[in-house]
Design a protein around this nucleic acid. Structure first.
Lengths: 136, 136
DNA sequence: ATACAAATGAAACAATGTTGCAAATATAAA
DNA sequence: TTTATATTTGCAACATTGTTTCATTTGTAT
């Protein structure tokens, strides 16, 4: 499924900026940072538009934001893309050497045993270490 | 154990700024943001010094940084404070209503089953929802 | 082709965090 | 208690990340 089809499926407007973001994520096949996406977009990149498109794509359920720490954010494409908001909840891996991020689809977010009175609506797992490539 | 004793135990210099940060965290008995600590420190607060003291206290193993998302950071005091770097690994809870953070000492960080080739050095769990007080 | 809502891009702002450097201070030793 | 020295402080300046307002442009359904 290409960018145009993804945008149509999720009923948001097809614009060059959105297509470029989706294409970057699909082509690299892994979550990317703003700067990595910017590099792909070249002169078409505009910071304000980028942030707004990231919001729009996130709301539409096309991408998800991955916060590694307060200064590192990546964006990943959603694979379970039939329908909206279907966050297929998984852990994320961050390589401290090459700074790549991998969606660990097989590492699901568990139900935690919270102290009584606490209600969970969402949870995030960030696993940091050395990725496959960097371990070779 | 008071701030002076904590600083001496961890062998870093006793300064008014460090004492104030430790006292704020101990008195509130929960992780606080920069602004919450700033409010406690009043006119003694200086941004640059604050950031440097946070670094020093973190390195000394006295406090730990809790990144809720890219715009929300809290600092919590370490309870297992005999010795350095003894990060007692636990999950953190963030209340989306009152924005308080709770160290869930009883929710331990598990060993994850990573794909072969991946090595983990550290992992973070942030659980978001509604805390005990806000659920009443 | 056109109408209208939505998206864009510029300027300006806000929050968070860092670095270099001179002055001030904490602490150990005399 | 005084002194010596390494550490810490606070200022100025900067870097990065993200948001808001508003006029202009563009996407898309009719």
């Amino acid at each position: 499924m290409n960018a145009t089809e993804i945008l149509k499926l999720h009923e948001i407007k097809k614009t060059p900026g959105r297509i470029a973001i989706i294409n970057a994520l699909v082509n690299y096949n892994q979550p990317l940072s703003e700067n990595e996406i910017k590099a792909e977009m070249q002169e078409m990149y505009d910071r304000i538009t980028f942030y707004r498109n990231v919001q729009a794509l996130t709301q539409a359920g096309i991408i998800h934001k991955i916060v590694i720490d307060n200064t590192t954010v990546k964006y990943g494409i959603n694979h379970c893309d039939h329908g909206h908001q279907h966050q297929n909840e998984h852990a994320h891996f961050f390589c401290e050497q090459c700074h790549s991020v991998v969606c660990l689809e097989e590492v699901k977010i568990p139900e935690y045993n919270l102290p009584s009175g606490y209600k969970c609506t969402e949870s995030d797992i960030i696993i940091k270490g050395k990725c496959k490539k960097c371990n070779q």
